[in-house]
Amino acid sequence: MFERIFVALLRLYPSHFRKVFQEEARQLIRERFRDETGLFRRFRLCLDLIVDLAIGLPAVWHTTAPEATTAPVFLGAENVPYFRVLDEERTSPVPFLVGSAVTLAALGLFSFVMSHPPRYIPPPGAKNRLSPIEVVMERLNQPSLTGAVDNRQHEAATPESKTDVPEMQPSRPAMAVAPLPRRVPVAPIAVAPPTGPASHPQSAGPGAFAGVAIRSFANQNFQPEMQQEAIVGTWQGLLPDLRSVVRVSVTSAGKVTVILYPMNQGGETFLATFADFRDGKLKFYIRSIDGTYEGKMAQDGLSIAGTWKEVGSSRFLPLHRTAR
């Protein structure tokens, strides 16, 4: 088999070289395969021929390039570009067919890779470290800077009503939060690990997961509707390919807002064009990425069965309540 391969590779040499030496080269390869038997000698022979191909082939093409010795082909007028015929052989259609097939295969492979991006694979030894998506989730769970300041003021005024809100690191403004119209206590959001086999990151493969955190602000003057009270809490869901975190919040005016934090967009965020929760159904739409989420909350209020729809694709995305 190897003999046939190396004989076939002689076709890579220039045609005028093959005209003179192809038969001899073919015979040389056959005689070497005939004489050099045994595992070691056969392996050494194949290595020799590969090295010879790598070194000898460019050298032959470089040193035996044909000279343009034929008369130039004039096109019937002076000062008109002309060309010389370098090879008397007619070009075979095989190179064109092979080139076309290779080009089509490369384009097909490129299209397939572009339409199926590889999943996020954590680096080795990162088992106990936070993944990028978990880092974002951790930042999302920290109270906002405005809320923390207001909270400290509230604690100073009423020490007996001390809450468990951790202090915000001023050097780490997690996200832009619009100033609240009133001083409000901020409930800490603790994102628990996903529970259940369907939402466990390892069970979903090495891909990153996206979580949905729904956070509310308890305002003493805020009169939320029953529907929005039902969704107050923290929710998480798996979305293996999105690598994004969606944060949903309910403002004091009762308006639902959604911000998408993609992991691979260099910190760029997307504000939902539309977000709503009513009749037990959560729905939001992000125009810039043409993504829509629609889900219905279960009777026990612990899960939301929904679907994330992006351009041309639709994925089932269940959300699970992790904290109230």
């Binding site: 002689l10 040499y13 070289f17 003179v20 030496f21 001899e24 080269a25 040389l28 390869i29 020799d48 021929l49 090295v51 010879d52 191909l53 070194i55 000898g56 082939l57 050298a59 032959v60 040193t63 035996t64």
Partner: peptide
């Protein structure tokens, strides 16, 4: 030195 066909006949041609 074990000459392969490319090196051998390239040199022979030169």
């Amino acid at each position: 030195i074990r000459l392969g066909p490319g090196t051998l006949y390239g040199s022979v041609q030169a």
